[in-house]
């Protein structure tokens, strides 16, 4: 018990819990939209592009996030343009941009003289290295996303359910799509600090698919996925500290355990209600 209090007294714990919980909320809210639009792999694609942005930052000795954010935002818009203008399928567009991201990152690290410790921590995440700037950015981004979602809730819901019908309701579907993708891009860069480039897409997808199993409405699915995501981050950080395991991997595994528990719960409650 005293170990828990000791852990909670560290300032890095506060930063990790704060930034982690806020990013968990943004990831889960955006994840719901992405999964329902069958664009869930955009998180994976943009995370790979983050690799290029980080490598570029490290090469020029700049704070990597400042370079990664604009690079990933531009790439997210690139994916949308490939879908809209070149008429590629979403998965093909994501695949192209994702591969370009990795290729660019590999070339840049090669120019820099190979991988270094910093880059590996971005690849696999290190929530205990979250800075106070990261905490403020995470809180600000979450507030912005929540304001956007609450103001445009019905438009977002309409576009997610049926984009063609949304157009005939006078909704500017392009504006909604671009805003969501750009917000996803920024979120992916910030989530990378928590779970790492390799696991970001799971952080977007798992809370959403867990929530869909028991959600009774669209609004309900947003609330449930946020709750599941925050619980997995908090439990993941504690597990990581006490078992001395990597935090990002612990968060994702806990997310998966919650997914399995909800599946079992739903399965048995269906069986019981059918009796």
């Amino acid at each position: 018990m005293s170990e828990i209090f000791e852990f909670l007294s560290y300032s890095f714990t506060h930063r990790a819990l704060l930034a982690g919980s806020f990013i968990a909320i943004t990831c889960s809210i955006l994840g719901v939209q992405l999964v329902l639009r069958r664009m869930s792999l955009i998180g994976d694609g943009l995370a790979h592009v983050t690799f290029s942005g980080i490598a570029l930052g490290l090469l020029f000795g700049l704070y990597p996030l400042y370079i990664a954010i604009p690079v990933v935002i531009l790439s997210s818009i690139g994916i949308l343009k490939l879908i809209e203008k070149v008429k590629l399928y979403g998965d093909s567009a994501i695949g192209i941009v994702s591969s370009l991201g990795v290729a660019g990152g590999v070339i840049l690290t090669s120019i820099a003289g190979g991988f270094n410790v910093d880059l590996l921590s971005f690849l696999f995440g290190n929530i205990l290295a979250v800075s106070i700037v990261d905490v403020f950015i995470s809180i600000a981004l979450t507030i912005l996303i929540l304001i956007f979602i609450s103001l445009y809730y019905n438009e977002i819901f309409s576009v997610t359910f049926d984009e063609e019908f949304a157009k005939t309701s006078g909704i500017n579907t392009k504006k909604i799509n671009t805003t969501l993708v750009v917000m996803t891009a920024v979120t992916v860069v910030l989530a990378m600090k928590i779970v790492g480039i390799m696991l970001t897409s799971a952080f977007l997808i798992l809370p959403a698919v867990s929530a869909f199993q028991i959600a009774k409405s669209f609004k309900n699915s947003l609330l449930l996925s946020s709750l599941i995501s925050v619980i997995s981050v908090i439990l993941g950080i504690f597990t990581s500290f006490f078992l001395n395991l990597p935090s990002g991997a612990c968060i994702i595994l806990l997310n998966f355990i919650l997914f399995c528990l909800i599946f079992v719960f739903r399965h048995y409650s269906n069986l019981l209600s059918g009796m």
Binding site: R38, N154, F161, D162, F218
Partner: peptide, 20 residues
């Protein structure tokens, strides 16, 4: 076209017709 797993109620869907 409609995703059968989309977590939404009948009421929510019909409400979309009022947005215009």
């Amino acid at each position: 076209f409609y995703n059968p797993r989309f977590p939404t109620t009948v009421e929510e869907i019909v409400s979309l017709g009022l947005l215009s």
